[in-house]
Design a protein around this nucleic acid. Structure first.
Length: 558
RNA sequence: AGGGGCGUCGUCAAGCGGUAAGACACUAGAUUUUGAUUCUAGCAUUCGCAGGUUCAAAUCCUGCCGCCCCUGCCA
């Protein structure tokens, strides 16, 4: 079985397998719980592939999509829409309709009231600053608030007042009564409801108090019958609180929280805060800028969902802090695109070639394979004429021994067309080569000759008269440092100033003009390129370079 | 003596007491009308370190070392 098809193996799936085998659970329910405060990135893709992936691996398993929308000040419907789109694009289907933590606001409030009635929660009237002081430090215990022992009746009245909007933001807060001396800071009477007089994107003005994550998440999981609640490592310290809430309250079930390490990718940042900053401060064109590690950026760049899913499969799931080499991601797209992308010829940096012995007005149509390994993908006709463009880098005036391409007196094959021999390099006043004069061998049509003589190099070309002009955007890594956060005050210092290079007059074979936005091609010998889904038009073709091809020649010259 | 988590090849990662899978990267070679693809071979006597238990340890025990996270009325 190939790696792509095999079911992943990791410690979480091992736990689930045991839970199913032991009868602890009949079927598995997971959830993907994003906060709609930004666009999803490749780190979320890891979580999506894990949670939704698991829901495809056992009988009756499902995965819920739940928006964790308890902070109205940071959240927005724009993000909700983008998140749904990204999950679907990745190829997953959530159970039922999407869920929202805000759907549970009534139930959550009722749970809070019962906590108060049990004497397990109280309204504190200390200021935020005082609460921070009272919390103690990592090595010293905190001290109890003077309001900690308010009566149940008083707490109930205060909580009701909070809910009705009688108090200002920050004047009161509902806290769980646990242990101010707990070595785990999360257990030092954590806040569970705060006053926020903000309009919520779904509940409008219905509420002026909003539940905190620690209170909301575990109860939402329980109400949805989640069996395994998967989250990243930084929540491990919250697990005792997750369990405390569910043990203290009477809930339908008690899901098991399991933590795994979040994804880090070399030469990029994966934090919504930092990505937001790149967007709002204009370092990139938007959340979907093809240089962004967002799912929408990666998609616009030309990556396929298959490639991304394969990537998530390859990197695995563990509890180890990791930083994945971006070459793994690159290899995943190449692997997928090598299979799927039709081949085409495109000259990025054109050098004019005149075939001196080719008839002035003749135009031939040469047959070219759309995929050398897949005849079933068919062939196409490519026009050939006296004036051509080739890649500037495919000619050297004084080529070294190992250079297989064109040079004075050298012969190369024009892919799918003819052999040409360079007879002269025409220069301008500055001494730069501006045109090549070549002769062709009429016997070599199609790319081989009766005498079967060998030519070492094959280069791509385009007929000058027939080629379409296009803008091609060449992307490089967004950051120059493997870990952009390390050793600097701001990650922005590591921004790569050359992450985008625009080539405005590339020459592409005419057939591509017919293609739809988003279509991905392989420009032979250079890389994979897609027609920009956002900005490309029939009048002005725009391509994004998705990835280069492997280049042994470039490597040799390093 | 704050609490929690983690340490297997350059980067990920299987392994869970029986003598180190796999992927990417890298190196060498073959085929090739993309210096692409494909193929073949090589790439951890060793699992953070030091002791111990055992016929046998990456796997069990003890001690050390290193890295990450936690003092939001964010999630």
């Amino acid at each position: 079985m190939s790696e792509t098809e095999s079911t992943p193996v990791d410690f979480i799936r091992n736990i689930i397998k045991e839970d199913l085998a032991s009868g602890k659970h009949k079927s598995v329910v997971t959830r993907f719980p994003p906060e709609p405060n930004g666009y999803l990135h490749i780190g979320h893709a890891k979580s999506i592939c894990l949670n939704f992936g698991i829901s495809q691996e056992s009988q009756g398993a499902v995965c819920n999509l739940r928006f964790d929308d308890t902070n109205p000040e940071k959240e927005d419907v724009e993000y909700i829409e983008s998140i749904k789109e990204d999950v679907q694009w990745l190829g997953f289907t959530w159970n039922e309709d999407p869920h929202y933590a805000s759907d549970y606001f009534d139930a959550l409030y009722a749970y809070a009231v019962s906590l108060v009635k049990m004497g397990k929660a109280y309204v504190d009237s200390l200021s935020a600053a005082e609460i921070r002081e009272y919390r103690g430090t990592l090595t010293e215990a905190g001290k109890e608030s003077p309001y900690r022992d308010r009566s149940v009746e008083e707490n109930l009245a205060l909580l009701d007042g909070m809910k009705r909007g009688d108090f200002e933001e920050g004047s009161h807060i509902l806290r769980a009564k646990i242990d101010m001396a707990a070595p785990n800071m999360n257990m030092r009477d954590p806040a569970i409801y705060r006053i926020r007089k903000a309009e919520h994107h779904r509940t409008g003005e219905a509420w002026c108090i909003y539940p905190m994550y620690d209170f909301t998440h575990c109860l939402s999981d329980a109400m949805e019958g989640i069996t395994h609640s998967l989250c990243t490592l930084e929540f491990a310290d919250h697990r005792p609180l997750y369990d405390w809430v569910l043990e203290t309250l009477d809930t339908p079930c008690h899901p098991q929280q399991i933590e795994f390490s979040r994804l880090n990718l070399s030469f990029t940042v994966l934090s919504k805060r930092k990505l937001l900053q790149l967007v709002t401060q204009g370092y990139v064109s938007g959340w979907d800028d093809p240089r962004m590690p967002t799912i929408s950026g990666i998609r616009r760049r030309g990556y396929t969902a298959e490639a991304l899913r394969h990537f998530c499969h390859r990197i695995g799931v563990s509890k180890k802090e990791t930083r994945i080499d971006y070459t793994i991601l690159e290899d995943c797209v190449r692997e997928d695109l090598n299979e799927k992308a039709p081949r085409v010829m495109g000259v990025l940096d054109p050098l004019k070639v005149t075939v001196t012995n080719y008839p002035e007005d003749l135009v031939e149509e040469v047959d070219a394979m759309n995929h050398p390994q897949k005849p079933e993908m068919g062939t196409r006709k490519v026009p050939f004429s006296k004036e051509l463009y080739i890649e500037k880098s495919d000619f050297m005036e004084a080529p070294p021994k190992k250079f297989f391409r064109l040079g004075p007196g050298r012969e190369v094959r024009l892919r799918s067309a003819y052999y040409i021999t360079c007879t002269e390099a025409v220069k301008n006043d500055a001494g730069e080569v501006v045109e090549l004069l070549c002769t062709y061998d009429p016997e070599s049509k199609g790319g081989s000759t009766p005498d079967e003589r060998k030519v070492k190099g094959t280069i791509h070309w385009v007929s000058a008269r027939h080629a379409v002009s296009a803008e091609v955007r060449i992307y490089d890594r967004l950051f120059n440092a493997e870990n952009p956060d390390k050793g600097v005050d701001s990650f922005l210092e590591n921004l790569n100033p050359d992450s985008l290079k625009i080539l405005s007059d590339c020459k592409i074979e005419p057939g591509v003009a017919e293609a739809d936005k988003g279509t991905i091609f392989q420009f032979e010998r250079t890389g994979y390129f897609n027609i920009d889904p956002v900005e490309s038009t029939r009048e002005r073709l725009v391509f994004n370079r998705t990835a280069t091809l492997r280049d042994a020649w470039a490597k040799m010259n390093k």
